[in-house]
Design a protein around this nucleic acid. Structure first.
Lengths: 151, 151
DNA sequence: ATTTGCGTTGCATACTTATTCACCATTATT
DNA sequence: AATAATGGTGAATAAGTATGCAACGCAAAT
């Protein structure tokens, strides 16, 4: 529940200006997430967001995973956790939006997991385009990624 | 007087962590600058400092930026005007060709305008791939971009 | 000299954010 | 099973920040 909320917070903050924790609370409520300002204060601290003239802002470059241990290449799930913002489907494609600079590592991780539905990926700076064989498979992939995003 | 104070603020913030405006006030007082928290609030806004988990932070990472005005990001229209060459549609995608090196800024500007038909964009050096939800919407987007291009 | 306009500031206060405390649920530990 | 430790939460409130307002100083215009 909490991780899902944290993910939603990053999403909201990345996609629209958020001037206060109370505004964030209202925006989350529209997504069915209902918490108090106190909790958001704690979440924001945990996500290491900072507040400037334009509202809340994601940490620079956004290295959320500062883990000391390195168990080989990071998993797709970890990558999504760190960089993923949202996912949308279009026809036989799936578009994953990420934090700026996050697209390449996310795409690389997705390539590594080797889902059979995925024909290939292309990554820009903050967008990964995932090509699937057909629309149905793209839907499956979108669902799976969304589940990971919200976990 | 004021500019001197702003300079001192940048200096203090750059050289030691500052957790609150009142702490900043005390540190400035040691330098012979005596102002109230209210004024510091205004100064901080003007300097565009932001406050994160570690206290106040300069805008540019190093912040020799002072209080220069920024016109905000250029519009999509301006970007197209500057870099756009031609636009073509393919299925649910729209391909915008640009001058070499123009794809990234054009894509960034297109992302910022936030057209709902656009699921995502990916940019190379001179080509922007715009993903739309379906073929029809791609047609709409192509028309709109073409209109801008030809205006 | 007086007026006018603008910029800066402090005070008081409204607004926003962080923290303390109590409570509850879940997960070890004995 | 009972107890303790851990972690998440809301309510209340403390701590911190922004702002309306009035006052002041200065410089240009009258």
């Amino acid at each position: 529940m909490k991780t899902q909320r944290l993910s939603a917070i990053r999403d909201v903050v990345a996609s629209s200006p958020v001037a206060s924790q109370d505004e964030l609370r209202r925006k989350l409520r529209r997504r069915g997430i209902h918490v108090t300002q106190a909790t958001l204060s704690r979440d924001i601290h945990e996500l290491r967001l900072s507040k400037g003239p334009g509202g809340y802002v994601l940490p620079n470059g956004n290295g959320i995973h500062a883990s000391a241990e390195d168990d080989g290449p990071p998993s797709f799930e970890e990558m999504l956790e760190s960089f993923g913002l949202r996912v949308r489907q279009a026809m036989n494609q799936v578009v994953v939006s990420t934090v700026l600079g996050g697209a390449q590592p996310v795409a690389a991780a997705l390539d590594r997991v080797g889902w059979p539905e995925v024909v290939g990926t292309i990554a820009g700076d903050d967008t990964v385009l995932v090509i699937c064989a057909d629309q149905r498979k793209a839907g499956d992939v979108e669902d799976r990624i969304r589940t990971l995003l919200e976990s």
